[in-house]
Nucleic acid binder design. Structure first.
Lengths: 196, 196
DNA sequence: GCTAACGGAATGAACTTTCATTCTGTAGAA
DNA sequence: TTCTACAGAATGAAAGTTCATTCCGTTAGC
């Protein structure tokens, strides 16, 4: 006895499956490096079916991109402890960043290993811009209290984000493990880079 | 009076022109995003001519890659002051890194904005591996003297390289200028991240 | 010094393959 | 029966590569 082939949730399920397959392939081969038929195959779906859910390859890629970026955004801001001292807030940021990279390696790879400018639409760019906000407001506050170095918040963000991605990328290549010890050490190192 | 149209150096000249055109396009659109006919057009060369100098698109990309990596390698190691104190050697490293990014924006973009694993051959991977050496031997020495944090050299390199690329990428997007002030500030920040 | 044959570099149209997208027949739900 | 969703074959554009041909500097013969 087979289950009903067209349940109500089938549409969303199929959309989901396609997005997941696309994320996996885009993460590994990039946008221009992954053919749509391969996405269909990976999703166990007809090639034409993808176009019932997404207008084009670009639209699919934008959906994947926004999904990954918003997941990261939510990871960073959800239940953020606004009243903790800056140093402890930084600890929370760092933990969440590393956790994101560990728990969502495909999303991280997709976002950080490839360039997206050639296909990102306005709404995706808006999502990308939103990710600056948590860091910006954090460093604006710490700058006022002279807790962090007197640099533009965006430069401080570049430092932290760069260190973070640098460490994660090298760990992905197997040069070392992202164990709690390394996470704690790198957090200290990163804080010393930005603190006053 | 026109110069001879087929001088002896024409072969190398043409190879050079093709490599430069490929670098420009690969830097902007990536390997999979740039068609060979476009490379030919940019180089003012027939499409078939490229194949007189390179076996395939992959071979061309590998040549471009090795060129860029080796340029960076030379920039780092040429006349390196082996006898300076570690802190001053770090200053030299940082200056050279930033200078490379300023003077070779295309090479930097090509190397850092795109993923290369899908087409790199063995010899290119060997060149990539070579770039770890200067940093590794530097941090091995500073680790012995307890000048830098007790971390594996590769982790320290990931920290420095990550900060460097993070800063340069954000400056490329126009969020701030890479002026001497910023360069000096970020150098201090980076050193504080890795120093004991 | 002049000319004519030569050889290899350059070319771009043509070939083959691959890709994104559309079309079509089928099967299940209503 | 009708209608929607689907799979996968079909399609046409574009890609990477090849190759017959052209072009041009060189050189041997006179």
């Amino acid at each position: 006895m087979t289950k009903p082939a067209r349940s109500t949730s089938d549409r969303t399920d199929k959309r989901e499956v396609i997005l997941q397959a696309a994320l996996e392939l885009f993460a590994e081969f990039g946008f221009h490096g992954t053919p749509m038929p391969l996405v269909a195959e990976r999703a166990n779906v007809g090639a034409g079916t993808i176009y019932r859910y997404f207008d084009s390859k670009e639209a699919l890629a934008n959906a994947v991109y926004q999904r990954a970026k918003l997941l990261l955004y939510e990871t960073l801001v959800k239940d953020f402890p606004e009243d903790l001292p800056a140093r402890q807030q930084f600890h929370v940021f760092w933990q969440r960043l590393i956790n994101f990279a560990i728990e969502n390696p495909l999303a991280f790879q997709f976002l950080e290993f490839h360039d997206h400018v050639s296909y990102l639409d306005e709404s995706s760019q808006a999502v990308a811009a939103k990710l600056w906000e948590p860091g910006c407001s954090f460093f604006e506050k710490t700058n006022q209290q002279q807790i962090t170095k007197p640099m533009p918040p965006k430069l401080l963000i570049a430092i932290v984000w760069g260190m973070f991605t640098g460490i994660v990328k090298v760990s992905y290549r197997g040069h070392f493990e992202l164990d709690p010890e390394v996470i704690a050490q790198t957090e200290r190192a990163c804080w010393e880079a930005v603190r006053y």
